[in-house]
Write a protein that binds this DNA or RNA. Structure first.
Lengths: 235, 235
DNA sequence: TTTTCATACCTGTATGAACCTGTATGCTAA
DNA sequence: TTAGCATACAGGTTCATACAGGTATGAAAA
């Protein structure tokens, strides 16, 4: 499988693919011209063309003579940290985030790593459809309590981002695990929160991240709308 | 100096290994070219190559023709398991495999990579519960047709394994993608095949693997019993 | 206003040189 | 016999360069 050893053309293809999948370059957009890419990657044009060839083979772009290369991949990927990417199948859907609570609580979710009752920072968030107000994701993060979390309770997340908040405190995830399964029926409580009908199946994603020393950084349970969300991974 | 009875190639391997393990040369870095190493160690190229061979056998480097040798030590890359591992939550369950068909057909599954109607080898399999006979997974593999697939139609899979069958023909997966999503309702046809009730939600796993050149090796759609199967990944 | 055309920019293609690994062969010395 | 050396050639990767032909645009001409 893919070693870190890759040719320059493969590197270029991988970088561009990431940009396309992450939505930085959207479907229908024209890619930079080959000559621009030559400057950007500081390689020869033949190498750029080889990289584009790889993307074309994968069906991510099509190129037209005299015009340029177009992105022909429609999906969007949100949350493409390490591990799985959560892919939003409908790139039209505009999402907004609502924070349900940021609080210091006793751990109330059963999880094999953080014992019930232990002191945690809880961040519960919902992402919902801008137009309909329907909740599409429900995300519950639990982080072992630290003294420097105190001002998060009053000031909120840094730039609205949990990862930035952690990073500002020098908490860096080094490794982790992820599980995905089908939640057969959405419980009534969650359904109420999300504005959905109870009993629907959902895609449940669970993630545990650790520091290099092995200490737990974050435990997250996400319930995702099964119609709009899927998981994606390249290897 | 202690007489270690060490050949020149072993010395070279040891010195380079020290440099890698000490971090002087980091993962992903390219090693000096063989000709540079010839100058540095003042030995012939065959000796250098023997030394590199030792490192490659140890998994410390990988070499690519036309490019060079790369350090691949570091732990993160070694994970040769491609993609997700499918975890069976109930380890008690004994599974048996039934092959539904091995046939040369025109592509009939809609997939963004293999156009409808193209010539493929189709292998459909069901894994089912030994005791109850209930189908737990339904797996549909599609591989672009090759002339040397002909005897698969008569002789079946090598050792009952598709990967072995491909490997025997020198078809090796180099990279790929995987998707997972919730299939809201199991279609009646599949339910019939699997001996399940239609309309249940299932976990649908899709995987596409490619050769180093980007050609498609295999496209697989798997429907998994959502109660028994989950996905797991460590990163 | 419409047509034509020069121009700039784009992709497609081809070439040779330089450098890389893979492989084979014959020779020398311990 | 084996490790090592020297050499040669095949084939992949990258670079630098050149030229052919498609596309878009704005200026000039009809």
């Amino acid at each position: 499988m893919r070693p870190t050893a890759e040719s320059k053309s493969e590197t270029i293809a991988r970088v561009l693919e990431d940009e396309i999948r992450s939505g930085a370059v959207r479907e229908g957009d024209t890619l930079e011209s080959e000559n621009d890419l030559v400057v950007r990657f500081a390689v020869s044009r033949s190498t750029i063309r080889k990289g584009l060839q790889i993307l074309a083979t994968k069906g991510l772009i099509t190129t037209k003579v005299g015009i340029g290369s177009f992105v022909t991949f429609g999906g969007t990927v949100i949350d493409s940290k390490s591990g799985w990417s959560v892919a939003l199948s409908d790139s039209e859907a505009r999402l907004q985030t609502r924070i349900l609570r940021i609080a210091r609580v006793a751990m109330e979710i059963t999880c094999p790593y953080l014992p019930l009752g232990c002191d945690v920072l809880a961040v519960d968030r919902i992402r919902f459809h801008e137009a309909t107000g329907r909740g599409l994701t429900l995300e519950r993060s639990r982080m072992p309590w630290r003294a420097d979390f105190a001002d998060v309770l009053t000031a909120g997340l840094l730039d609205g981002s949990l990862s930035k908040t952690l990073e500002a405190r020098d908490i860096r995830s080094h490794s982790g695990e992820e599980w995905a399964r089908v939640l057969p029926a959405l419980p009534a409580v969650e359904a109420e929160l999300m504005g959905r009908t109870p009993g629907e199946p959902m895609l449940r994603l669970t993630r545990l991240t650790r520091t290099a020393a092995g200490a737990i950084v974050e435990y997250v349970e996400s319930d995702l709308d099964p119609v709009l969300f899927g998981l994606h991974m390249a290897f």
